[in-house]
Design a protein around this nucleic acid. Structure first.
Lengths: 213, 213
DNA sequence: CAGGTAGCAATACAAACGTATGGTTCAGCA
DNA sequence: TGCTGAACCATACGTTTGTATTGCTACCTG
């Protein structure tokens, strides 16, 4: 057998190059030559690891979902104890809303893939699975909050989670096109959480900001 | 002067061709030749009315916003009297969530343009203005609802409207990629409206579906 | 009725694209 | 030590792309 290289490492480098170009110039602007140049390899090498352009993009999308999932799990695990359901949901929002340059890159790429999935069915499944995963995660937190009497028990947790997730996801494009700052977007999330969560120990909702001045 | 034609009519026909292609195959798949073929005109004619491809796309985007605005105003005016704030917001949601094939087309095109705006600043302004317009509209309705004691007066109407708008907009891609049906999406809106609006005449929120069975 | 110009259509063109092909190099087992 | 096949690289090919160019046609104006 001839020389061995780490296939996965090569592929990941190419995927990262795809992300950079997509975030900077959009998904429609990526060419295999640009990808190769950005990754610092030859066009031939890209072709060696992916048979078609579509496969490159698909892998880049899958890897993005994979990486985002890992990072979410990591940041959730790294929170101060004990993690309340509300703070967990808030942490998900913080990870989704693009506040830092790296997150902006990830969000822009994710968003571009969602758009492509509208007319590219082979990507749609990937997107749907990712959404379903996040939804399940949030639903669990809502249920925990209900058990802790922090959320009204009469409300359907799956439905509440759906709205929560939709708000967070819906804020992403608003930040990406400069309609809102990341801070404003997170404020929208907080006000919505105020609506859903009742303040600890009190029977009715307290209105207004999260920190009284 | 030589023969006169209606410039606006020609441009609109071309814009409609753009929409069709975008909704069917994505924004990255539109070429001037495809546009010409779809519009049933020659490539030369497209070039006669638009100097560059970018101008074609920009016009198609502007026209889409324009048309969506007109249709929204029309459908809001055509509702049974008297229109409650909640029903107005619900009508906006119905117009945004792609339930019919035509609306799906419009939503897919809109969504594609938003995505392009992430990396194309000249489109971003258009998108932001459209968002701001809708937000102002919803905010007015929330304020009216507060005056009518249908929404708690302690809440910031602009913030409530922002969440409402974000939920509705956030549902669009979910429907477009087949994660939710249009009916499910509207149900999410209704449950959120249940949270924000208190039932007529009662002091506390009634939970569950909008129509008791 | 003359003619100038708006309204096209046809074609040309260079660039960029995805993909295919052929060759070179060299690690690793026999 | 030789040789086989994985890992490339370079280049070529045919298409498609946006845009430029050229020229014809027919209508409105003077």
């Amino acid at each position: 057998m001839p020389r061995k290289v780490d296939h996965e490492q090569r592929r990941r480098r190419i995927a990262e190059a795809v992300w950079t170009i997509v975030a900077l110039r959009g998904l429609e602007a990526v060419s295999l030559r640009d990808i190769a140049a950005e990754a610092g390899v030859s066009l031939g090498q890209v072709q060696h690891y992916f048979r078609t352009k579509e496969q490159v993009l698909r892998y880049a999308g899958q890897r993005l979902v994979e990486l985002a999932g890992e990072e979410l799990r990591r940041s959730l695990a790294a929170r101060p104890e004990p993690p309340s359901p509300r703070s967990t949901i808030r942490a998900i929002a913080e990870q989704t809303v693009p506040a830092t340059p790296e997150r902006r890159l990830g969000a822009a790429v994710w968003y571009a893939f969602v758009t492509r999935a509208v007319t590219a069915p082979e990507l749609a499944a990937l997107i749907r699975e990712a959404w379903a995963g996040t939804h399940a995660l949030i639903t669990d937190e809502v249920r925990a909050a209900q058990r802790a009497r922090q959320v009204a028990t009469g409300l359907d947790p799956a439905e509440l989670a759906a709205t929560l997730q939709t708000v967070v996801d819906g804020l992403v494009p608003q930040v990406l096109v400069g309609y809102r700052t990341p801070a404003e977007a997170l404020a929208v999330v907080d006000r919505h959480l105020d609506l859903v969560f009742r303040p600890a120990g009190r029977p009715t909702a307290r209105l207004g900001g999260e920190a009284p001045r």
